[in-house]
Simulated assay, not measured.
Amino acid sequence: MLQSLSNSKQHLIIFTRYPEPGRTKTRLIPALGTVGAANLQRQMTEHTISQVKELQQATNVSLEVRFTGGNLQLMQNWLGLDLVYQLQGEGDLGLRMARSLFDAFQSEMKQVVIIGTDCPGVNSRILTKAFEQLHSFDLVLGPAIDGGYYLIGLRRFIGELFANIDWGTSQVLQQTVDIAVKLNLLHTYLSLLADVDLPEDLPIWEQVIKGEVGVWDDRELER
């Protein structure tokens, strides 16, 4: 499946959705409207990919876009023909992530990282750090302020990390760490970042597009 990728053993998977109005960023529709919310999805995905391409200029990392909504032609028309695209497929988020990781490790990747596009603070430096940490740790997590995670990195397939998780809740990170501890996995954390999911999160995106830093200190967490 991934034979068309470079000979890199480091692989990055981006989870995103085709920006169809009314079907993406739905919690932001009251503030932005259906078209505005879809445009934000489009811009945030493009921003994420730009950060990955910056990473690729310095590091040999292959890239794959796992998408939902739209179709292959629409994705290629949007983001170009030079990317590898795969459908996320059926199931909850955990099953879809587990499937993508299984495929990557079956293709003999040694370090695999998954990110979404909801966290504009993810940049090439953070991605570089994630892959560096995978030399020493079994599991790398990027904690999100809402209790989830914006990044997960592994150096082998561990399906248990994606089962019996209450996806979309503030318990996701802690439940994942609890499983990692039970499995005796060496794990570490990246910087704490904020997702853009709700109208009150929009200033986070505005700061990023103004070129401000996306990593938050304790004062900035008090909203």
Rank of each mutant, 00 (worst) to 15 (best):
L72M: 11
Q73K: 10
Q73D: 13
M75K: 01
M75P: 02
M75F: 00
Q76G: 08
Q76M: 12
Q76F: 06
Q76A: 14
N77K: 15
W78G: 06
L79K: 06
L81M: 10
D82Q: 11
D82C: 01
L83R: 09
V84M: 10
Y85H: 05
Q88I: 06
Q88L: 12
Q88T: 09
L93G: 04
G94F: 02
L95D: 05
M97E: 05
R99Y: 03
L101S: 08
F102I: 14
D103Y: 12
A104E: 01
A104R: 04
F105G: 12
F105Q: 13
F105E: 10
Q106K: 12
Q106R: 14
Q111A: 11
Q111V: 10
V112F: 02
V112Y: 00
V113G: 04
I114G: 07
I115H: 00
G116E: 00
N123Y: 01
N123A: 02
R125Y: 08
L127A: 11
T128C: 14
A130S: 14
A130V: 13
F131H: 15
E132F: 14
E132H: 14
E132S: 15
Q133D: 14
Q133F: 15
Q133R: 15
L134G: 02
L134W: 05
H135E: 12
S136V: 12
L139G: 00
V140R: 00
L141Y: 00
L141G: 00
I145L: 14
D146F: 05
G147T: 03
G148L: 10
Y149D: 08
Y149W: 13
Y149K: 03
I152R: 00
I152E: 00
I152L: 00
I152C: 02
L154P: 09
R155E: 07
R156A: 09
R156V: 07
R156C: 08
F157C: 06
F157Y: 09
I158S: 06
G159K: 11
E160H: 08
E160M: 09
F162C: 13
F162G: 11
F162E: 05
A163P: 03
A163C: 09
A163S: 07
W167A: 06
S170D: 11
S170H: 05
Q171H: 03
L173R: 04
Q175S: 09
T176H: 01
V177R: 06
D178M: 06
I179D: 03
A180L: 07
A180P: 04
A180C: 04
V181A: 14
V181P: 02
K182S: 12
K182I: 11
N184E: 13
N184L: 04
N184G: 01
L185K: 13
L186A: 15
H187K: 13
